[in-house]
Write a protein that binds this DNA or RNA. Structure first.
Length: 812
RNA sequence: GCGAGAGUGGCGUAAUUGGCAAACGCGCUAGUCUUAGAAGCUAGAUUCUGUGGGUUCAAAUCCCACCUUUCGCACCA
């Protein structure tokens, strides 16, 4: 008998499948469709084990669904713009294009060794191909034309190591570090392009109609940060100006004892009538501080009085106007009313500067002392509003303000517009021409794509390398034909990845970003990828779908119906894999040693897919044995060739077989790969034991072996194909249907009755017929020779029978 | 500080969702095979669900408190 040799069979089948284009997309529109998307990789060089963990289990699910008769669209591509290519270029003097495209060639081969069943021919998307980024640029222009892309000069987050500006989502933690390189970001004043994602803030909070994990919904909801309240206008004494504040507590307006402005607030210099020098110094220090490390909450509150007064809209009394750096310019209106009795920060501020602290809300159980008090209660010291509950007060005061024309209800979001300008080379150029006479002009469609120039220097100057290419930069205005300059920034690579699933359905369509004729595939039915994209890619993707829908370009508002987040694969030491820790697992070596089938299966077996977990180099041995045993089971002749199998034995074989068909199908459907594998192991163990009995001579046995191979096919495409062929079945096992589950064959005829006394296990009675009546079962338990003596001198208070499971005898 | 999740044998984990705790796998022990080792085969052991309380005939599962831990947010008015 041949031995199982993955080195021989895996490349053999991979070549044949590729030669036959076995996984070409089925165009049959009568079958139910399933657009199954996995987050496409950045071409970093080679696949690491994390890629395998991310891509191999979904491949098993895709294969399973195909066997179930579903028309599965399962594409792959590369998110191939981005900084690493450029950094490599700077470091080693290679063209980023060469570096990127070499990497992709290598990784495509690796995907092949994985045995992945992607519909790759005629569907692969590469975001750095001019044919792709032409449409990224075209979409930018549509956003521009619909006022969803705009340019603004503002202080932006700047990563000094990556030498580019970043979106707010891409700055992490209280130390404000770059999501990509962990360097601390600084603030810079720059002219930047932004996408108006805030237009969709409200709708992005609505997850009805999509099945996404609670966790991602929470992350996005918190990121958007909706809060409801009011804007209140305070007139300034002896001035025509006024200050508008945002508050979630209009009910506490009578407790306001100061207005506090962010130091960057535009009215600061106008309002400063005292200590001009120290105010200017404070403003300067604040700007500097925000550039250096900001030690947020624990820092003592500081501030200065401007010397000016505002008029309280209700009491008409003057209240001081201060500046303080605990008020942020980029949230709300950059100004607040300070209500020390009912806000912790305002309380600390008022304490420090001896501002009055009037109480205006009295909670029912309040001790009359503790401040600040954030609970709800009855309004006091609030003029005509006294006696209302503060919830009523919110409404009443807002209404009063509206009447006075000094305020209105307002909703604020923490979400900011998405800053997409990047001062780097390897990205899609922003297709805008700046003309001195005509202003900003989009590049006409027939001039797209705006190609990246080659032969550019990649010195990390902090300015786009495109600026240095006069050939790129100098152009003519499409409107007046006069001399003009191209925008030299490139787009955030998250723009590239915000629409790639539309291109997959036909990357070759020449005259549109998406092939409308094939849009029946949309939206994506299921999307699998890491949780780290919760507030970046996944938020941008939803924004794009909604914006494109508003422009009439797609007919849905949510791009991904279901979302599933896999976990992270860790090193053997339970730590994140990294070169510096030396705990990196190289899949290419594993393929050589164990073969793709074994690696795939082990990655699925390691634990729940959403949990991730540590790699184990001994654990994988269990899968090695599993496939060796499978191989031997199928190919080694049985030692028995006489005798007659009993009906009970045959039923028992069918029972476990059909239970496994059901279980594996269910588990693959729900990404529960680990339990699918373990139930296949159970079945295999059963069959190995049964093999040397008479049952191995029955037709049911042959059927069982075939079924086992079909059940394993999605997990291990190579060995299953090989064994399928060895059984004399026709090519290919991957074109076969999933075994049909027969519930009556899976059904039990007897069960094991558990007998408990006061909840403690006392006896197991095997082989109780399912047709036994409740009374008979109870009697069976009570009269059992191991149970009855224990009941002899006790009073039986209750006998509980849980059908087909257990009897619990309650005694005293 | 706020919010969300997770704690089960030596290890990775499972438990039909309130009903036999530990299936499956790793590791371990013994036997067998072998010139020997590895592999294989056979047999086996360990543990009692983070802690404390509650609900229930019955709790890994539900409720409360605490501990540990992972993740997210960071003065958001």
């Amino acid at each position: 008998m041949r031995k199982y040799n993955h080195r021989e069979i895996e490349p053999k089948w991979q070549e044949r499948w590729e030669g036959d284009d076995l996984y070409r997309l089925d165009t049959d529109r009568n079958k139910p469709k399933w657009y199954f998307l996995t987050m496409f990789p950045y071409p970093s060089g080679r696949l690491h084990i994390g890629h395998w963990f991310m891509y191999a289990p979904p491949d098993a699910k895709a294969r399973y669904l195909r066997m179930k008769g579903v028309n599965v669209f399962f594409p792959i591509g590369f998110d191939s713009f981005g900084l690493p290519a450029e950094n490599a270029a700077i470091k080693r003097g290679v063209d980023p294009r060469v570096w990127t495209y070499d990497n992709m060639d290598y990784m495509r081969k690796e995907f092949r060794t994985m045995g992945a069943s992607y519909n790759r021919n005629h569907h692969e998307v590469v975001t750095s191909d001019p044919d792709y980024y032409r449409w990224t640029q075209w979409l930018f222009i549509q956003f521009f034309k619909h006022n969803l892309a705009y340019r603004k000069k503002a202080p932006v987050d700047w990563c000094p190591r990556c030498n580019t500006s970043l979106a707010r989502e891409q700055v992490k933690g209280d130390e404000r570090r770059c999501d990509r390189c962990q360097a601390q970001v600084i603030k810079k004043d720059l002219d930047q392009w932004l996408f108006k994602i805030t237009n969709y803030a409200e709708e992005l909070l609505d997850f009805s109609g999509i099945e996404w994990p609670e966790r991602v919904q929470t992350l996005q909801t918190e990121w958007i940060g909706r809060s409801e309240g009011a804007e209140i206008e305070f007139k300034i004494e002896n001035s025509n100006s006024s200050i508008t504040v945002f508050t979630t507590r209009p009910d506490t307006v009578f407790g306001a004892t100061a207005l506090v402005l962010a130091p960057e607030h535009p009215l600061v210099s106008e309002l400063t009538t005292k200590n001009k020098a120290s105010i200017e110094d404070y403003v300067f220090q604040t700007k500097r501080a925000s550039e250096i490390e900001r030690l947020a909450t624990t820092r003592e509150k500081t501030g200065l009085w401007t010397g000016s007064y505002a008029i309280h809209p209700f009491t008409k009394e003057p209240i001081q106007i201060w500046i303080a750096d605990y008020v942020l310019m980029n949230y709300g209106t950059g100004a607040i009313m300070s209500v020390p009795a009912h806000d912790e920060r305002d309380f600390a501020f008022a304490k420090k500067y001896n501002l009055p602290i009037p109480v205006v809300i009295k909670p029912a159980n309040w001790d009359g002392q503790t401040l600040p008090n954030l609970e709800s209660g009855e309004m006091i010291n609030s003029g005509e509003f006294n006696g209302l509950s503060n919830e009523e007060g919110k409404k009443a005061i807002t209404e009063a303000l509206v009447k006075m024309n000094q305020g209105s209800a307002a909703i604020n979001y923490r979400l900011h517009d998405w800053l997409i300008s990047r001062q780097r080379y390897w990205g899609a150029p922003i297709p805008i021409i700046h003309c001195q006479n005509c202003g900003m002009q989009p590049v006409p469609d027939n001039q797209l794509p705006v190609l990246l120039p080659s032969g550019v220097q990649f010195l990390p100057t902090g300015e786009s390398p495109l600026k240095l290419s006069s050939e790129f930069k100098n152009t003519t205005c499409p409107k007046c034909q006069g001399k003009a300059e191209r925008d030299t920034d490139t787009m955030d690579t998250f723009v590239d990845s915000s629409w790639y699933w539309y291109r997959y359905i036909n990357p070759d369509v020449p005259n549109a970003f998406m092939d409308k004729d094939k849009s029946h595939w949309l939206p994506v039915d299921e999307y699998a990828g890491g949780i780290e994209h919760a507030t970046m890619h996944l938020l941008y993707a939803r924004f794009f779908a909604k914006a494109l829908n508003d422009m009439g370009l797609v007919d849905h508002r949510e791009p991904f119906k279901k979302l599933f987040n896999q976990g992270l694969i860790l090193g053997e030491d339970n730590q994140k894999m990294s070169k510096s820790r030396g705990n990196v697992i190289d899949p290419d070596k594993l393929v050589e040693e164990y073969g793709a089938d074994t690696i795939r299966t082990y990655l699925m077996f390691i634990g729940p897919w959403e949990a991730g977990g540590p790699w184990s180099s001994t654990g994988i041995e269990g899968i090695v044995r599993f496939y060796r045993k499978l191989w031997n089971l199928v190919l080694e002749p049985s030692s028995t060739n006489d005798g007659v199998a009993s009906a009970t034995e045959i039923r028992s074989l069918q029972r476990i077989l059909h239970k496994t068909i059901n279980k594996v199908g269910h588990d693959l459907e729900h990404f529960q790969f680990n339990t699918a594998v373990s139930s296949l192991m159970e079945l295999l163990n059963y069959l190995i034991k049964a093999k040397d009995t008479a049952i191995s001579q029955t037709p049911e046995w042959k059927e069982a072996i075939k079924t086992l191979i079909l059940l394993i096919a999605p997990l291990a495409p190579h060995i299953s194909e090989e064994l399928w062929e060895a059984l004399g079945e026709s090519y290919s096992v991957h074109k076969e249907s999933w075994p049909k589950y027969n519930a009556s064959l899976a059904a039990d005829e007897v069960f094991t009755l558990i007998v408990q006394i006061n909840g403690k296990l006392r006896e197991r009675i095997e082989g109780v017929s399912l047709s036994t009546t409740d009374e008979e079962v109870k009697e069976l338990a009570l009269s059992n020779p191991n149970v009855a003596p224990q009941l002899a001198d006790k009073e039986i208070k209750n006998v509980i029978y849980v059908a087909k499971r257990l009897v619990n005898i309650v005694v005293k």
